[in-house]
Design a protein around this nucleic acid. Sequence first.
DNA 1: CACAGTTGTGACCTGGCTGTGACCGGCGAC
DNA 2: GTCGCCGGTCACAGCCAGGTCACAACTGTG
Lengths: 221, 221
Amino acid sequence: MRVLVAEDHERLARAVAAGLRRYGMAVDVALDGDSALARLGASRYDVVVLDRDLPGVHGDEICRSLAAERSESRVLMLTAASSVQDRVEGLGLGADDYLAKPFDFSEMVARVQALGRRPGAPRPELLGYRDLTVDAEKGLADRAGRRLALSPKEFAVLECLLVAEGRPVSAEELLDRVWDEATDPFTTTVKATINRLRVKLGDPQLIDTVRERGYRIGGQR
Amino acid sequence: MRVLVAEDHERLARAVAAGLRRYGMAVDVALDGDSALARLGASRYDVVVLDRDLPGVHGDEICRSLAAERSESRVLMLTAASSVQDRVEGLGLGADDYLAKPFDFSEMVARVQALGRRPGAPRPELLGYRDLTVDAEKGLADRAGRRLALSPKEFAVLECLLVAEGRPVSAEELLDRVWDEATDPFTTTVKATINRLRVKLGDPQLIDTVRERGYRIGGQR
DNA sequence: CACAGTTGTGACCTGGCTGTGACCGGCGAC
DNA sequence: GTCGCCGGTCACAGCCAGGTCACAACTGTG
């Protein structure tokens, strides 16, 4: 899941980013409104954690413009004041959820996760293929009844492949969905991660290679 | 929104139907597999609430045939067993969502609504001829139920021929569509690729040669 | 601090893909 | 007939996408 944290207090921004990364999310940070908009224009985010009082372009403004272009990104608005009035205003602007500072860290993470899960269709929370099952929410993966110990990246890649339901997913697409934007487009890390994932998944192979098109789950009947 | 409830326990079927009608949906009921298929043939439904264990034609069968004819109807599969295995199998068959009995009524309604809202999420683009089927999106090709292992070029050529629907496609056109533009116009590689493709497709021949004009899909006739 | 787990990198290997050219066979033109 | 052309078949060789592996940087943890 890709997240943009737009927050001008650098310490807070870094802390939030670090917290989200520990849950396997790919996080970018913007310290002011203009760079937030630039990031949003340049790449796709599932969730934007948006400080309302942002220098440069104001948080409200960003929220409005996201709503206007019917962006797929969900917005979690952060605010200093906790008045009900604020809350109402925020949601009116098109934010999808609202959190008053100071906030509890785990609550913030939970809400970001919930927002990321929400897009469009009710993705059945349980993913699977053959004897493999993945509970994206709980972060658990089993194969043939045995629990797999997957790293965050491995897990995220596997989730992507399962969501694609057999459509091949290119390395670029994986980079886009699992890694954050600071990633070198020529990196070989996807290759390595797929390799490690394959080893952990065991036999018989579940991840096919489709030459020049990417990787896909299943395939051989 | 039009909904078909295919469920053999009459009491349950009526209850479900009544519940959905309270949310303004137009609901028909089928108590066995055959009448479900008849209904589906006779009119269009946005969502099918489908019991997996259906007398007559089995729920799995119905699901498969809906997927095969690229129906616009979304399927919410109901099942007695709640094993993960079942869940996974159902989704594999082309169901769009899955619910284990006993289920919470309001959850069922919510899921049906969600499915109805998701406007015909693009069904797989399936190409085919006779006993050959090609899923261009997933990069899969089968003949007579057997998976074919095609190279990228072979696959692309086959796709071109299928899209042309029997119209002959010249080597020049294939070069243009499948190869990149820096390709020597006098190359013999098309010849070779068609040859390899024919071998992999097996008998009876599916690719005709039209002298001077190119290749076309369609065995003798 | 040591230690373990995760991730990215670069070097190396390999198997399959692909283009080529040589050769063959059939068919139509003459 | 037979010549010429179009297309089929085949073996071969180079190449490159992708697999594998070891290692190093980094991080969190006790």
